[in-house]
Amino acid sequence: MPTEPTDGRDAAAWSPLDSDGWYAARNATTALRDVLVRAGLEKDFPYLRADLNAFGHGLVELGRVSPATAERVAELLRLALASGFGRDRNDDGDEPTVAEEHQGRA
């Protein structure tokens, strides 16, 4: 990327593996996949993958899902919120991300 050192290479030699955004997206995708497997929803998200946008920012592609799957995810989120998930906070006052929750269980 333009702000990253090239180490003598031109921009055509850039790889997503040189990007922190790629690893962040991959780790978040893995954490989400693990939760979907535990919820029995892994086959309902066939397009789940890590990606980068044109600026090198990591993204998680969820893809399209059926209305039944969307309802199931909504119900799981409602249950998580009702059980107090939203009340947990980090030291900086922000709510933990799924990846942080996943790492904390290791």
Rank of each mutant, 00 (worst) to 15 (best):
M1L: 14
M1P: 14
M1C: 12
P2H: 14
T3E: 09
E4K: 15
E4W: 12
P5V: 09
G8S: 08
G8P: 11
R9N: 15
D10E: 10
D10S: 11
A11W: 15
A11G: 13
A12M: 14
A12C: 06
A13Y: 14
A13I: 09
A13T: 09
S15W: 12
S15H: 15
P16C: 06
P16A: 06
L17W: 15
D18A: 15
D18V: 04
D18F: 13
D18G: 14
D18K: 08
D18T: 14
S19K: 06
S19V: 12
S19F: 12
S19D: 15
Y23F: 13
A24D: 08
R26N: 07
R26W: 13
N27Y: 09
N27W: 04
A28M: 10
A28P: 00
T29V: 04
T30W: 04
T30R: 11
T30V: 04
A31Q: 03
A31E: 03
L32T: 12
V35K: 08
V37H: 05
V37G: 02
R38N: 08
R38L: 10
A39F: 12
G40A: 01
E42L: 05
E42Y: 01
K43M: 05
K43Q: 11
K43F: 10
K43W: 09
P46T: 08
Y47G: 06
Y47D: 15
Y47W: 07
Y47L: 12
L48T: 13
L48H: 05
A50N: 05
L52T: 05
L52V: 11
L52K: 01
N53E: 06
A54T: 13
F55D: 09
F55M: 08
F55P: 01
H57I: 09
G58K: 00
G58I: 04
V60L: 07
V60T: 14
E61L: 10
E61N: 09
E61W: 14
E61A: 04
L62D: 02
G63V: 05
G63F: 07
R64L: 08
R64N: 07
V65F: 07
P67K: 00
A68P: 02
A68L: 11
A68C: 02
T69L: 03
T69G: 03
A70N: 05
A70L: 08
E71Y: 00
R72K: 14
V73F: 12
V73D: 00
A74Y: 01
A74F: 02
E75L: 14
L76F: 11
R78F: 08
A80S: 08
L81M: 09
L81P: 01
A82C: 01
A82F: 05
A82K: 09
A82P: 04
S83W: 00
G86E: 11
G86Y: 06
D88C: 03
D88A: 07
R89G: 02
R89E: 09
R89D: 06
D91S: 09
D92S: 04
G93T: 08
E95A: 15
E95Y: 05
E95G: 07
E95V: 11
P96Q: 10
P96E: 03
P96N: 01
A99K: 02
E101Q: 10
H102P: 01
R105G: 04
R105A: 10
R105D: 11
R105Q: 13
A106V: 13
A106H: 10
